[in-house]
Structures are given as structure tokens and as C-alpha cells.
Simulated assay, not measured.
Amino acid sequence: MSGRTYTLKEVERQTAALPADLPALSEAARAGAARVLRRIGPVERAVLLGSGDSLYAAQSSRRFFTDAGIECLAMPATEFLHEFPSPEPPGRTTVVGVSASGGNPAVVAALSRARAAGHPTVAVTGAAASPMADAAETVVVADPGASAPSPGIRTHQASLVSLLHLAHAARAALGGPEDTVAAGPFDTAAVARAQRRTLALVEPAAATVARLLAPAPVVCVVAPTGALGTARYLAAKLSETAGVPAIASCPEEWWHVHRFGHDAAHPVLMLLSPGPGRLAALETAARMTVRRRLIVVAEAGDAEARAAASVLVPVTDGVPRAARPLVDAVVAGPVALALARVLGRLPFARQ
């Protein structure tokens, strides 16, 4: 790595800042998404591009585009650039690049190629003056402000908020009522309160979870299809913050593949939020608990999840579906911090 200094204190500070960041980010994203739709018109098909946290934000938001009847793919920018044929006909597919810094070379190149081919292009970034903003036809800027070096936490939320608002605006452009468009996809103040409650609920459980995960050579994070973007983000924070190899997979993949390489003495971490794939995940959870401990991230009042869990990591109940990724994602910071402290590691130190 570079000579930058990474600390657990900064990870803690950024995690605590998420609810306070949300109102300004949401307002900037709402206004930016509205401008984008005025500029490019209705979105018929979308391809969301990113790397790392930006890709996980794209994956978390994809289903909100598809819910609106918009065909949507979320994929790595490098894959699109080198292997994905230019969508035809030009103008029918909107290409959205996601990079908090606005400097990801693969995303910049992908947007430049798509724009040259005649497709509407959108940059989702925290930096208005950046190569990616210059490469795209139009831009949504949501900047959480300066931070010390850290695994991406505040920046991931900014990307996710922007994409959720963009999906909402795209849906509205297809015929939603004007007052719904203006209000945005969720009540921002209520979601910020839900994030604060979730942080308070997760904190007592995080130390227990860390002690259970610490002996595992690899942490397996399992989530239904609707929450795989969040699961990948959680796995990334465990790797970056605590230096632990972590993989994320859907329940079907875990059951048929990864369980054979995972010692039954080590627990599995599962997200069981409401949404697509939940029933299948519960079925897999019931099979898993016969031989191994299951750490479950789920709503505090979810009786089915609590019954399946050896340890429950509770998140706030009743969050609107459109805001669920924003609330579930705050779990990553406290769990990654607790695991880093148990293992005596600093972010990115193994490199």
C-alpha cells in the first residue's frame, strides 16, 4: 500500500457519521437525479458499472431499477470495457458509471466508449471536478466531505444514496405522480433515525460476533439475491479492516459449493432482511443449523430469523424496502471494527 496511515478510530468515526451524512447526501442525490432525467429522458435499459464498493452499491440498487420495469445489469467496469459488446441500438441503453473519487480509469474509459457509441451516460460520484464527470454526458454528485484514509464507508453510502434516487427518478419518468417524485424514495430523516437505532442495536452483539469469527481462516457471508450487494460490501469491510479473507454468496451457492470447504466448527454469517430470496434463505438456514452455528443479521422483531440464529445481530424493524440497503450496510462497520480489535489488526495492514 501507500504510506497513508489507516486507523480503526477513523473507521469508527466514519461509521458513526453515516446518519448525520444522510440528509445532505439525499438532497444532493435527489436534485442530481432529477437533473439527469431532464437531460437524458426516460431510461429504458440501464447498465451500472463500478469496482469494489461502487460495484456493490450498484448491485444493491439494481433491483430498484428492475422493480420500475427497467431492464438493468450491474457489472464490473473492466468487464464491460473489454468483453461487453456495445448495446444496440444506440440511445436505448443508459450507461451509469459509479466511482466515489471519480478517478477509476476503467469506469472513465467505459463511459467514454459508451458515450462515443451514442448512449446516454451518467456519472455517479462524489467529485464534480473529476475525469469521470468529464467523461459522462451528465452527473449526480453527492459528496460526503473530506475524511482521513479509511476503508470506504461514507463514500459507499454516498454512491448508494445516489443510485437509489436515480432509480426512483427513472421510475417517476415512466409515469409516477409528481409529488412522489419530489419526495424521493424514502423519508430521509426516518431512515437516519433507523440507522442510529441499528448502530445502537449492533454494538452489543459485535464483540460476540467477532470472537466467534476470529478463529475462521475464511469468513463466509451468505445472503439472498436481493441482499447480495450488501453482503459483498460487508465481506469487503471484514477484509479491508480486519485482514480476514471473506466471501459472499447466495444460499444456493453456499450450500452446493462453499460449505464443503468451510469447517463446520466455524460459524456462517447470514443476512436475512426482508426482500427477494428470503424464503429460500430461511430454508437453507434451517439445514445449516443442524451442524454449525449461524450468525444472523435480521430485523430485531423477526421471529423466524431469531429461531434460526445462534447469535442475532439485530437491525431496525419496518424500514421501507427502498431504504433497506442503507440501514443494513451500517452493520459492516461495527462488526469489522470488533473483529480487527480481537485480531489486533489495522486496516490494510496485511499488505
Rank of each mutant, 00 (worst) to 15 (best):
R62G: 05
R341P: 01
L160E: 11
T15M: 02
A129Q: 15
E252P: 01
A190Q: 04
R154P: 11
A123I: 00
P325T: 05
P334G: 13
A332D: 11
L346K: 04
G97H: 00
V313F: 12
L343A: 00
P144G: 12
S310I: 03
A298Y: 00
G226R: 03
L199S: 10
S51K: 09
G41D: 04
V181D: 15
R293K: 10
R193H: 05
A307P: 00
L55H: 12
V181W: 09
V36C: 09
A167G: 08
L199A: 07
P85E: 10
A308D: 10
G176F: 09
A129V: 12
L174F: 04
R197C: 08
G97K: 06
L37Y: 14
Y56P: 11
Y6D: 05
G277K: 14
A349N: 04
P87W: 03
L163K: 13
Q14K: 11
E88Y: 05
G32Q: 10
T125R: 11
P177T: 12
R321M: 03
A114V: 10
L282R: 13
R341T: 06
P76V: 02
A28E: 15
C250W: 03
S101T: 14
G333P: 15
A106K: 06
V202I: 09
D302I: 04
A322F: 08
D67I: 01
R232Q: 13
N104V: 03
R39K: 14
L271D: 12
D67R: 11
T5V: 14
Y6R: 04
A281F: 02
A106Y: 15
L81E: 04
W255P: 02
V161D: 09
T138F: 05
A127G: 00
T121R: 13
A148N: 07
R287M: 01
L199D: 13
T94I: 03
T289R: 15
D21N: 09
E71P: 00
A248R: 05
R63Q: 09
A336I: 09
G277W: 06
P267F: 04
T241Q: 03
